[in-house]
Every structure is written in structure tokens, then in C-alpha cells.
């Protein structure tokens, strides 16, 4: 993402439907069940060295980390309307919808 500053709270985002683990060894902090899902940015949590590189002892650029909320029933086709799942996600996994 090339946004100049952190995404503001309320920004609608989609988690990339990407599967790096299918291409080779990978360390990923984006849970499977969220790939392709749409959610809303709740808060910018700061910037941290990218764990996907840290895990392989590669130089790790700092990436913005967000708390993103997802409607819980939408993820599983079950559950109670209004319930949410709140997840920490790095900027390079998010596309602004």
C-alpha cells in the first residue's frame, strides 16, 4: 500500500486472498480464515518489523499494524449478528475497498 500515513479508523479493507504458503516456505501472521474477507480498521497499532522476514533472519522493514474488525457470522456462515472478530493485520495484507 502506498498511502502516505496510517489508515484512519473506519477504513473499509479487504484481506488479500493470497496464499504464500502454497509457493514455498513462509511464516504468516494472517490467519487462513480471513483471506479475502472484508473488515473495518479499528485502530493503527504502530509499526513493527515484518515477522514474515524476521522468521527467516532476513532484514525486516517496519510495517504498519492495524486492528481490523470483521463480522463474525460472515466468516463462518454461523453465529450471532453483531458479533465480531478483531485481528492484528499488517498493512501489506490489506487492500482499501
Amino acid at each position: 500500500m502506498s498511502a502516505p500515513g496510517p489508515l484512519p479508523a473506519g477504513t473499509r479493507v479487504r484481506v488479500k486472498d493470497d496464499w504464500p504458503e502454497a509457493r514455498g516456505p513462509a511464516h504468516i501472521r494472517t490467519p487462513h480464515y480471513l483471506r479475502g474477507a472484508e473488515g473495518v480498521v479499528v485502530r493503527h497499532l504502530g509499526a513493527y518489523p515484518n515477522p514474515e522476514d524476521l522468521a527467516f533472519a532476513r532484514p525486516a522493514a517496519r510495517r504498519a499494524l492495524y486492528h481490523v474488525a470483521f463480522a463474525q457470522p460472515g466468516l463462518w456462515q454461523q453465529g450471532v449478528a453483531g458479533d465480531e472478530v478483531l485481528v492484528e493485520l499488517y498493512e501489506h495484507w490489506l487492500e482499501v475497498v
Binding site: R29, P31, P51, E84, V85, L86, V87, L89
Partner: peptide
């Protein structure tokens, strides 16, 4: 009461 599941995936 709304349930908010917090999946702790990263640095916090």
C-alpha cells in the same frame, strides 16, 4: 451483549 473475539496474531 455483543461478543468480540480478539485473535492475537502479531506484535501485541
Amino acid at each position: 451483549v455483543k461478543v468480540r473475539v480478539v485473535d492475537s496474531t502479531a506484535d501485541y
